[in-house]
Amino acid sequence: MAAARALINVPPKARRGEVIGIKSLISHEMETGFRPNATGQLIPRNIIKEFVCTYNGVEVFRAEFFPAVSANPFVSFTTRATESGTITMTWTGDNGFHASESVAITVE
């Protein structure tokens, strides 16, 4: 499994109750499993299947991906800033793929 590179964007500071935007991008080929190789055989599927965002350990957003999600998946969504702490994003997929990225947020 190749090391994945993830890029996430969460505002470092927010007011309590404010709705903040979260953006995430991760390197992954998202091989569909529907594509033939040079000899006509299907290249096995290799995708990220699940993306989960937790806020101080509590799940606030989850996505399930199918092969129609583009390579290097990008997802943007929102969450309400409730308290200071850590926002963690985790991606899991075929062939034991697992990547995780965390950022701190300060809520005033």
Binding site: V19, I20, T32, F34, Y55, V58, V60, F61, R62, A63, E64, F65, F66, P67, A68, V69, S70, P73, F74, V75, S76, F77, T78, T79, R80, T82
Partner: peptide, 30 residues
């Protein structure tokens, strides 16, 4: 969902009251 991709499902997003808004962006294959 899509009509003519090899598989109809594209993605499922699960959210709840903590999301604040239901406002999502992603990129898909067509």
């Amino acid at each position: 969902f899509t009509e003519k991709n090899p598989q109809p499902n594209v993605a499922v997003f699960q959210l709840g009251p903590r999301a604040g808004t239901a406002d999502i962006q992603t990129r898909m294959r067509l």
